[in-house]
Design a protein around this nucleic acid. Structure first.
Lengths: 226, 226
DNA sequence: GCTCAGTAGACTGTAGACAAAAGGCAATCG
DNA sequence: CGATTGCCTTTTGTCTACAGTCTACTGAGC
């Protein structure tokens, strides 16, 4: 037992910077997803290293990880290039996402208690408020949080990890789309919550499947309009 | 046009050693999956480096990749440890595998032509032969090849990549199990081929789902027997 | 005899240096 | 004038060295 009078939560383990490669990884991912680094662009290690104020090594390690996760292509003896998404790949990725999210919805319906329902409703309310306020960035963030919460309630760590990666890439490809469908999206979220609350696995699966499929449709509609 | 009289296929691009980190990665993965490196074991970089005849750097990079793929746990400032699979994790992994394989079966049913069917039948025949001959290792390898072929016929690269990783880990956890169910497994494979040939997506999905679920049951039965 | 502080060892995290390979450019030969 | 070949620059791939940190052991004090 600690004899100090310090409250437990107040000293959260002496915040340490964490491995440098992690921070470089985060930074690069941020730069890629925000389009600061454009698809196809050649990433030079020494350049990035100088720009971030670290040596080449952490940059290398971050690039390797980004490579295995599909964000950059690492051509041997030539360097790293920001991955260029193709139509086909985006479609395939969305198919997988639909699959994972639908399963998460099913598991969430099977496991979730009242506490989880409440949390989902709060996120939903927050998102709807953001839509009416027209705060686009907040809408997107809350949407991501909502899906993450469903994934958490599913209680499958492996599934969550995979879905996390797929989701982030999908969001990268479909950024312009996400901003288009605000209101309808949250109506569907409400339906999903209802299905989970009633522990109706089949309905939760179907609603989530339809929900993510709508994103695909919106994308293709945008394609035709453009 | 080349004016040399060299036959095109005879010089297959001058097989090059490939990046060192790749080979280290392959080597370590082999050592882990074959249980030469046991779960929980502490992997010291310099030790591995000396053993493989390379410097620490490629070993580091290989370990990082193994970490992101879930084979080793990388505790900060302490080193790499071979991941110790838990009951829960194995179960979750199997759930995800069922999901991915079932979807692959569905897509394969939607896309596959006669050529693909033939290839599957050949693999199936090979597997059945191996079962009757009692060549356990060949059975396992052919089984993996069969599933990989289905995944290829599905034509979804993203799905294939995810499934490849999940499959390999599942096979690691369930190695003892895989050797138990030989004959029944290939009967189910035959049913799957029939469903794909008839382009019956729903039936293909269900057969594959049942097929992978049987693995889980066999595992739990083994648990009780032990 | 037990606990705790101090110290030594080992390992990782990071930086810097060197060698090898690939691509581009210019000069030269047909 | 065009194609080819050789050189040069740039960038990666690998190795070695150093600093920070954690662990485990030893010895002294209670």
């Amino acid at each position: 037992m600690l004899s100090t009078g310090l409250p437990q939560g107040a000293v959260p383990k002496l915040e340490r910077p964490g491995p440098l490669r992690e921070r470089v990884y985060e930074a690069l991912l941020e730069l890629i997803t925000t389009r600061a680094l454009q698809p196809g662009q050649h990433l030079v290690e020494s350049e990035l290293a100088g720009h971030l104020g670290v040596s080449r090594q952490p940059v290398r390690e971050a690039l390797q990880r980004l490579n295995t996760e599909g964000w950059v292509d690492l051509r041997p003896a030539q360097g790293a290039f920001v991955h260029e998404p193709t139509e086909e790949e985006a479609d395939q990725l969305l198919t997988v996402r639909t699959l994972l999210e639908a399963e998460a919805a099913r598991l969430a319906a099977a496991n979730t208690g009242t506490a989880g329902i409440t949390a989902l409703e709060e996120l939903c309310a927050k998102g709807e408020q953001a839509v009416t306020d027209g705060e686009v960035d907040l809408v997107v963030a809350t949407n991501a949080a909502f899906h993450a919460k469903v994934m958490e309630l599913a209680g499958n760590v492996v599934l969550a990890e995979l879905a996390g990666q797929v989701d982030r890439r999908v969001r990268w490809y479909y950024t312009p789309v996400a901003r288009r469908r605000g209101k309808q999206s949250w109506i569907e979220h409400r339906q999903l919550i209802a299905a989970i609350a009633e522990r109706d696995e089949r309905r939760a699966t179907e609603i989530m499947r339809a929900h993510t499929e709508h994103t695909r449709e919106t994308y293709h509609r945008r394609e035709r309009d453009a």
